[in-house]
């Protein structure tokens, strides 16, 4: 089966409200899409995401997610990041149907996915394939 990852740029979410951001993410999760956010959510938005997930576990069991910049939590570090204009880091959110675990290693993050567990078609599969153009063959003829 296919696994789809959507990479979402910071601009796409920046001007959205918290509920809009959460809906944007969960819509994709329910379609078995793994979402990679260039700019992560705030801790309050993260609890909002957990709450929304827990309210809606009929269709899916939940999510796995990980934000990569969690060490920037001390006051000094937070001030330094604000001055430097640093936002919260890259965040991976995936449905537990596919993403078994996301683990932090000293130098990298590992995501463990289980391919066989995802029976639902991804949105990528739903899109109609465009008919192949005959241009190349015809071009050769010319």
């Amino acid at each position: 089966m296919d696994i789809r990852l959507d990479f979402i740029s910071a601009e796409v979410l920046r001007n959205r409200s918290t509920p809009e951001k959460i809906s944007f993410i969960l819509e994709r999760i329910k379609e078995n899409v793994i979402v990679v956010l260039e700019e992560g959510l705030t801790p309050q938005e993260e609890t909002g995401l957990i709450e929304a997930t827990m309210k809606d576990t009929k269709d899916f069991h939940g999510i796995e997610f990980y934000r990569m910049d969690h060490t920037v939590t001390g006051l000094r570090e937070r001030i330094a990041s604000l001055i430097a204009g640093k936002k919260s880091g890259l965040t991976i959110v995936g449905p537990t149907r596919i993403v078994e675990a996301i683990k932090r290693e000293p130098d990298y993050i590992s995501m463990f996915a289980k391919v066989e567990a995802s029976k639902k078609k991804t949105r990528a599969k739903k899109t109609k394939k465009k008919p192949k153009k005959k241009a190349s063959k015809e071009g050769k003829k010319e």
Binding site: E64, F65, Y66
Partner: peptide
């Protein structure tokens, strides 16, 4: 258990915020 989990990070982040 491994303490570097998103649950721990989110709880602490919320309390700090």
């Amino acid at each position: 258990e491994d303490p570097y989990t998103q649950i721990n990070i989110t709880i602490i982040g919320n309390l700090e915020a």
